[in-house]
Computed example of a mutant assay.
Amino acid sequence: MPLPQPDGDGDKETRGRALVVAGSVPVPGGALLAGIGVLRAGAGKLQIATVASVAAHLGLALPEALVAGLHETPEGGIAAESAQALAERASHCDTVLIGPGMMDEPATAALTADLLRRLDPGGDGPRFVLDAGALAGLAQDPAPLHRHAGRVVVTPHAGEMAGLLGCPREQVDADPLGSARRAAARLKAVVALKGGCTRIVAPDGRAWAYRDGTVGLATSGSGDTLAGIVTGLLARGASPEQAAIWGVYLHGEAGNRLSSRIGPLGFLARELLAEIPAVMASLAEGTGG
């Protein structure tokens, strides 16, 4: 299942355009980590949409991206009424990531559902990665997600998976593969259930597992980096299954490299991102992680 590779004549447009909808006043770094992940995975162009009070700072921290500021809620999140403006921007992108660092859960759920309803499904519309706060409203109403069946990756941890399935977390921990399969079928999306062993499941029940990560990956911001990497691979033209499988692998192998060089604990999520190009290069050369 090889990743799509650009030819020597291609420019940044041929590697896809990604939009990251992320961040909040309390957690602006989620947008930064996810955005860098998109570019480190090889996507050609990046746009970030975040709360207005953070946008200028984020633009300086990540000068490679176009950064748009959106209306804020009193809690410092992206306001739900931003969906109309986002839909226009997203319609010109290949892939849209929603969720990292979005702390106003009700506003994020409403924004995600409205944006999914506004965007055209199928070949003319973008594909999606939903992470963190964007997962909150799907258990109650997955219908907006169903419009984009076969074009979505969701990246929950066990607690978020329990919310998606409406069950105790202990039930997810007892049967992570079965839980991921139920969620993939219910949401009609590829599911990457994060954990010590990460399960990736397609809507038809096909499943893969990555068991080789280090304990150091369980650190603040790590999920934001993974979501960005998966988004970048999708923008490059990978299928949802490919993007999820290889995104999890690249993320895990980056952690293994840091673990060998720095130590098994204490490396930072941001440090994972600089390792991604070298891991991808080793795959292209056939030398593995």
Rank of each mutant, 00 (worst) to 15 (best):
T108Y: 10
G166M: 10
T112L: 00
R151K: 09
A110D: 15
A149H: 06
Q140P: 03
R117G: 08
L164C: 07
G125H: 00
P144C: 08
R169W: 01
H146M: 11
L86M: 10
A136E: 11
P100E: 11
L164A: 09
E64T: 09
A79G: 09
P100A: 11
P168R: 04
A80D: 05
L86S: 04
V96S: 04
H71T: 15
A107Q: 05
V67L: 03
C167R: 15
S179V: 06
A107G: 10
A174L: 05
R181C: 09
P168I: 03
E88Q: 14
P74M: 02
A79E: 10
G166K: 11
A136H: 13
A87D: 02
G69Q: 12
E72I: 10
G101F: 07
L138Y: 05
P121F: 08
T108H: 11
L111P: 05
P106R: 14
L165Q: 03
P121Q: 10
A87P: 06
V153E: 00
E170H: 14
E170R: 15
E160T: 06
D114H: 11
R169N: 12
P106M: 14
F128W: 06
D141Q: 06
A184R: 01
E160N: 11
P100N: 11
A162F: 04
C167F: 02
A68K: 13
E160L: 08
A149S: 15
Q171D: 15
L111C: 08
P168W: 00
A87L: 07
A80P: 04
A80R: 03
A68P: 00
R117C: 10
A65R: 08
H92V: 11
E160A: 09
D104P: 06
G166L: 12
L145D: 04
D141G: 02
T95E: 02
G178M: 14
D131P: 00
E160M: 08
Q140H: 15
D104R: 07
P106G: 14
A158H: 12
V67M: 01
M161D: 04
A68M: 15
T95G: 04
P121W: 07
H71W: 15
G166P: 11
A87F: 12
A65C: 05
P142G: 02
P74Q: 00
H146Q: 12
F128C: 09
A136I: 08
E81L: 12
P100M: 09
T73F: 06
P106F: 12
A113K: 05
A109W: 00
M103I: 11
E72T: 11
E160S: 10
Q84D: 15
L116I: 05
L115Y: 03
V96C: 09
A183R: 02
D131N: 05
G125L: 03
R147C: 01
P106K: 14
L177T: 09
Q171R: 13
M102W: 09
R182K: 13
L116E: 01
V153P: 00
A65G: 03
V153Y: 06
S179H: 12
T155W: 07
I98L: 15
A90I: 10
V152P: 05
D104F: 07
T108Q: 09
L66A: 14
R117N: 13
V96N: 02
A83Y: 04
T95Y: 11
